[in-house]
């Protein structure tokens, strides 16, 4: 296994005058848990979209597990082991919760027959959705949609999971449940990159924090140190640090 799982080299992307990535380089090791913070419009979700294949960078290369994946679409990248969740959950609304996970198990992980059933079931069990397996996904509430989003990503057998604000809008016990799931992923050697506005959730779950502003990484390293960084406070945190301190 290569020393780096995901490697971005000098990625640039702009939408008209808005720069979402400027000469951005970063790498993620297998099994690492990395948090990604930054103000709105910093380019966090765009970065995910470029890694997952939904968006093509204007310049730079993206490598996964030693191979350049720039030209691959999202489905091919999922099959390689990049799983993603969407900020606004996108369940298959008319399918059951089980079927949602089964699609990822069969297509993303390439599992067949009973093996695919088992894989889908295990991911749902992990995300506490077993009592809702036969529910139509469109009838789920926000917490369950977020759980399903995560379960579907896990069912595809990822080596890297991109979590886009899975904790947003959830209560503290609900956030804690998600943090536990992320910790267990890490324990298994699955790398996680997690975008989150709820900073307290991140600090407990990641061992490295990146701060992005205007398409540039302005801080990278130990979460507590990054949050103390004056540059990070200036562009982003200011008020949030106080909240973090009270939790």
């Amino acid at each position: 296994m290569p020393a780096t799982l995901l490697e971005l080299v000098r990625i640039s992307k702009r939408f008209g005058g808005v720069v979402v990535a400027h000469d951005l380089s970063l790498s993620v090791e297998p099994g690492a848990a990395v948090g990604l913070v930054g103000p709105n419009g910093a380019g966090k979700t765009s970065l995910f979209s470029m890694v997952a294949g939904d968006l093509r960078p204007d310049a730079g290369t993206i490598s996964f597990d030693g191979a350049v994946v720039n030209r691959l679409g999202p489905a091919a990248r999922c099959r390689l082991g990049i799983g993603r969740t969407y900020q606004v959950p996108k369940p298959f609304e008319r399918m059951t919760v089980f079927e949602n996970a089964l699609v990822a198990a069969q297509q993303g992980a390439g599992a067949r027959g009973q093996d695919s059933h088992h894989r889908a079931f295990a991911s749902l069990e992990r995300c506490n959705l077993i009592d809702k397996v036969n529910r139509e996904a469109g009838s789920l509430g926000l917490l369950d949609r977020k759980r399903l989003e995560l379960a579907r990503a896990l069912a595809s057998g990822p080596r890297l999971v991109l979590l886009d604000e899975v904790a947003g809008g959830l209560t503290q016990p609900e956030v804690r449940e998600l943090v536990d799931i992320v910790r267990s992923l890490r324990a298994e050697g699955t790398a996680v990159v997690w975008i989150e506005h709820v900073v307290r959730a991140l600090v407990g779950a990641v061992d490295r924090l990146l701060c992005l502003a205007a398409g540039v990484v302005i801080a990278d390293g130990d979460p507590v140190r990054v949050l103390d960084d004056p540059a990070v406070r200036e562009v982003y945190l200011g008020t949030e640090l106080a909240i973090e301190g009270t939790v």
Partner: peptide
């Protein structure tokens, strides 16, 4: 069939289907 499950997923959300590994 497996393809049927894929088609139902595409019907419901094409982006999510691709993200789940489906060759749409």
């Amino acid at each position: 069939s497996r393809l049927g499950l894929v088609l139902a997923a595409v019907r419901d959300n094409e982006d999510a289907a691709r993200a789940a590994g489906t060759r749409v």
